[in-house]
Design a binder for these strands. Structure first.
Lengths: 137, 137
DNA sequence: TATGGACCCTGTAGCCGCCACAGGGTCAAG
DNA sequence: CTTGACCCTGTGGCGGCTACAGGGTCCATA
């Protein structure tokens, strides 16, 4: 019963919706531990890797940086530690997302008014170009 | 009267709120034309460069990519061309911004509910970690 | 006139989060 | 035994800069 089912990188890639190169890259930057190799030097992954990579991908989808994910994974392994830090990381990230949304909305308003001014004439009198230009030359 | 006032890269940088390295980089990637040089091989900028760089910076602030800006600048020089393309670029960019906002808002909702579940206990029962993990192991 | 410090030059390498090769090796099916 | 799908390592690229290192230039001051 010491034999666990293992699978190749391609299988892991498909199962998690990750590109093969990305998995190898996660390994290089220390997010995913280096798996055992087969006799032919192929990476042999197990269930633990699948779980970990799924975690990583889900967190990436939620916009966490690889650094944040590294921290989350570290913490996740210390089962009896308080989860304050996890909460803090998530809150910090939420604030960042809120800032980004606000920035984009401000930008959106500016863009919108820019476009609203276009009279579809010639460049010489294009309001968009004018608005971008420094001073009414 | 053939003498125009020129200035060094540092002056241009300050005037436009751009880093010196960034200006040199814009030159390398062909956004800003290479200026004349002084006898000591210093870049000597004029009013035209100032205008162009201001345009670039303003467009960057509005989130246009350097490629888009390149196109806008090209078009801006053809004074008697219709400004449809300009309008199209701006609209396309607006749509992209809208998509980004929507994505971030969806993400924000997910994050928020994640955080709302945290009971500040131990990692072993942390809802955030659980939510990120693939299956309730 | 010498010197110090502020500026400028080129070139290269790094950031993030991958993606896309090139140039090989491995493995299983037919 | 060949074909073709997979795997390996290593390198370079994307956007949009930023940050050096290792020099040159310029101008004011002592």
């Amino acid at each position: 019963m010491g034999t666990e089912t293992t699978f190749n990188i391609g299988v892991l890639a498909k199962a998690t919706g990750t590109k093969v190169e990305t998995i190898r890259w996660y390994e290089r930057v220390g997010l995913l531990s280096a798996p055992d190799r087969t006799s032919g030097n192929y990476r042999a992954y197990g269930a633990a890797h699948l779980g970990r990579l799924s975690f990583i991908r889900r967190a990436r989808d939620l916009g966490f940086s690889l650094d944040q994910i590294r921290t989350l994974l570290d913490i996740a392994e210390q089962q009896d530690r308080s989860c304050e830090t996890v909460d803090a990381i998530a809150r910090e990230h939420l604030e960042e997302v809120d800032r980004k949304i606000a920035d984009l909305q401000a930008l959106r308003r500016e863009l919108d008014s820019l476009i609203g001014q276009c009279r579809h004439g010639r460049i010489a009198e294009c309001r968009i170009i004018e608005a971008l230009a420094p001073c009414p030359a």
